[in-house]
Each structure stands twice: as C-alpha cells, then as structure tokens.
Design a protein around this nucleic acid. Structure first.
Lengths: 222, 222
DNA sequence: ATCAATCTGTAACAGTTGTTACAAGTACGT
DNA sequence: ACGTACTTGTAACAACTGTTACAGATTGAT
C-alpha cells in the first residue's frame, strides 16, 4: 500500500502506532488520487468521512451567491481536510476543495473516526487541537476581512507574515490570489500595493516582500 | 447548589446523567456570577477551562489593531463559551466575552473535560458537534464579510433570517450593532438601509423587518 | 525559440463608503 | 414628567474601491 507521509499529519501523527501498515489495513479506509484542478469536495456536499491529504496541495474557497470566489486557504500535505465540519449537524461542507496538483487522499468513515477517538486518547487530543487551531485561523481571517481599507488589510497580513523581522520573505500568491484572499478587486489591490511601494513602506520583487518602514505600515491599520 | 439550565446545553445535555447534583459535585468545577457589562474573558487571555454559560447572555467581539470593534455574536444560556479554542496550541482566546446582563458561568478545567470525553462518548459527540457547528457559523460570517457592498451584506443577512417567509421578523440589534456586525460605518449602513426602504425592497419598523420584494433583494447580492 | 496563458501595471470614471456633524426621536430610570 | 443616554435620520464632502479596458511583462510548455 503506497501512500504519503502519515506520521507527521497533525491529527494522525504521534499515535504510538507500532506498525503503520497494519494500522492502515485495519482501518476501514480508501485511498484515492485526484489529478490537478480536480474538484475534490463541492460546497454543500455531505461529508460523512474524514479526508486526509497525504500527497500534494489543495485550495479551499467559497462561492458566494453572486458567483464571487473567496479563497480561504491553501493546504499542504499531510493534513486533514474538512475535519472541522465532519461532526456538524447538517454535515455539509461550506467550502469547495480543489487539487492544486496531483494529490492523494485517504478517506476514513466517520464511524471509524469515532472508534479511533474512543480507543486512542492521543488521536482525540490531536483532533481537538487541530480543530481548535483551525477555528483560530478562521477568526483571524474574520479579523482581516473586517479591516475596511485594502492597505489596512495588506498591512495586517504583512505584519503577520514578517513576524517582526526586517528580512524579505516570500508570499506564494499572485496579486490576483491575494486580492481574492482579501475579498477585493484585483486592480484595486494593485493600486494600493503600488502606492505603498511608492511611499517607501514596502519593497516587492516578484513574490518577495520586504517591510521598509514598520511604523508607517502600522499607521495604515488605523 | 443553585444553577441554571444544564440539561439543554448543547454540550452537556442528553448525557444520561441520573443524578445531576451528584454529577456536578463530582466534577471539579467552579460556579461564578458576573454583573452586567463585566468583561468575562479578555482577548488574548489564556483559557485552560471550559466556560458554560448557564444563566443570561453574553456578546463576543474582536478588537482590531486600530481599536475597531467587530462583533461576532451574542450567546444565550445555556451554551459553552470558547469551547472551540480550549484545545488550541496557544490556548488564547481570540475574542472578548462580555456579560450583557447578570450571568452565571460554570468553569470546568480542561483536564476534567478530557476525562469526561474519554468516559462519556455522548459528551464527546456533543462537544465535537457543537464545535463543528461553530465553525460553520464562522465560515458563514466570513462569507458575509466578503460581500463587497453594504446592501449586499444586508440582503444576505435578511434572506438568511427570513428563511423564505414573507412574514415580518425581529432582529434584536440596533442599527449601530448591525453596522458593527457587518464591519461598516453606522451612517453608511443607515443610508443603505433607507435606500432599500425607499426602493420598496424591505419595510422596517423599529427592529421588525419585512421583505417586500425577494427578487430585488437577491439582485443586490450581485 | 516561440507561442499561449497568465500575471502585472496603469488609466479614467462611476459608484460606494467613511467621516463628521447635528437635529430629532426614543427608551429608561427616578 | 423630566432629564439623560442612547438611537436614528440626514447632509456634504472627502476618500476609497470597483469596473473596464488595454499594453506590457513573465512564465511555462512544446
């Protein structure tokens, strides 16, 4: 049974499993590959299984009523998908999940997850912690979207990414993807970005960003 | 031991507990009352216990870097608070929780929660389901905030509240609170609201809202 | 190397929102 | 009934964002 890195998954790792092969064989699960750009989970689709992304990367996004896309995040293997919705009352995924490259996914039925939790305290803790971290991520996203100006959003995001350092860092998103992430129009984002560059607040080369003036950047949050 | 309604709490209800008094006495927990407007949990505060609101109501909100408030939701007893952050890696509450009236809160240490989960499958399922529902709530909130116009946000919100009915319904928030909920300025919200009223799309009397023209309302989402 | 697809920069204009300010209305406690 | 605090309505203006359009980079595949 060929599969990706399982042990370093935030939910499935550190389980003190002696024999991973035996563990996986015992677990009622299916493994499946998806090609690039394939829709893996559709918004509104019923989820009664946990998906674990073992190889590759995916993106999640919401389609709003008016047809706009809001990108939520990109996820790299190994990580569970939709774990935070598996036990909800309506069992529906609120997001689309799409493969960014060729991916491999393990699908574990909900009943198996319950069994694992009851028998393996470590698995349960992992699961709870992962979901809690995801909620914090969403709350942070909420805070970002509630900032009213584009420059303010970008400032918030850059300050978070830079982590206090003056060193340049890479943001692996195009301007279009960043605009989608901030839920603003692409040319508007480009305008704000170029203004901030002209004002000497940041420097941008391709996808490499560098903060030149922390104070001015923080002022943009006001 | 006097306390509020415990059995109908989404996490603590339906546990097949024969003797509630004995259950609570056995559980290592503390019960405490807070006066109106008291800050119960501060944003950034470390949470190592589950809070269960047994009497009254609270509101949760985020303070952004620039000092703006983003209201998240109001919560009515009985319901757990910050259950979705309890197991996160940093253990910090991302929100402020404030009493809207005199409230009573039971505080249960994290270790006790873990013990309960392992010994009571029903409690675990309740907990997971509640957290999953909360995540869906947050995702929905994210979708609302990503709508670019105020009228669009209001349309989204009203369509959700009305649930397809033409009957008037009450939204228990002032205009200022709604503006905060939508992360927009209050006069701007008032302007959009009055325009929608003048256009014959909705009718508003105090806090009672009625949809007069579903089609036009849906058009605002575009 | 060349082509197609994607990404970036920019412009003009319309449309929407924020800001500030003030008057009028309502709710509530005493 | 009175006053205070809160809520609502509205106006004018500045500021910001969306839309549309197009040309010039850049990237990746063949």
């Amino acid at each position: 049974m060929k599969h990706g890195d399982f042990q370093s998954c935030p939910v499935c790792g550190n389980l003190n499993i002696l024999d991973e092969e035996a563990f996986l064989d015992d677990l009622k699960c299916t493994i499946r590959a998806y090609p690039k750009n394939q829709l893996i989970i559709r918004q509104g689709e019923v989820c009664d299984a946990l998906y674990i992304l073992t190889v590759g990367s995916v993106k999640t996004e919401i389609i709003t009523e008016n047809g706009n896309l809001v990108s939520i995040e990109t996820i790299e293997a190994p990580r569970p998908l939709v774990s935070e919705f598996l036990f909800s009352d309506n069992n529906q995924s609120p997001v689309n999940v799409t493969a960014l490259e060729e991916v491999e996914i393990i699908k574990i039925p909900k009943s198996e997850i319950v069994r694992l939790m009851m028998s393996n305290p470590h698995f349960m803790q992992n699961y709870l912690t992962h979901n809690a971290n995801r909620t914090q991520f969403l709350t942070n996203r909420l805070q970002l979207l509630s900032i009213k100006t584009i420059k303010g959003k970008l400032a918030h995001y850059l300050l978070e990414q830079a982590q206090g350092s003056l060193k340049p860092f890479v943001i692996n998103k195009s301007q279009g993807e960043l605009a989608e992430f901030f839920a603003v129009a692409r040319p508007s984002f480009a305008r704000s970005l170029s203004e901030m560059i002209h004002d000497g607040i940041i420097r941008v080369t391709r996808r490499e960003y560098q903060i030149l003036n922390f104070d001015k950047l923080k002022e943009l949050l006001v």
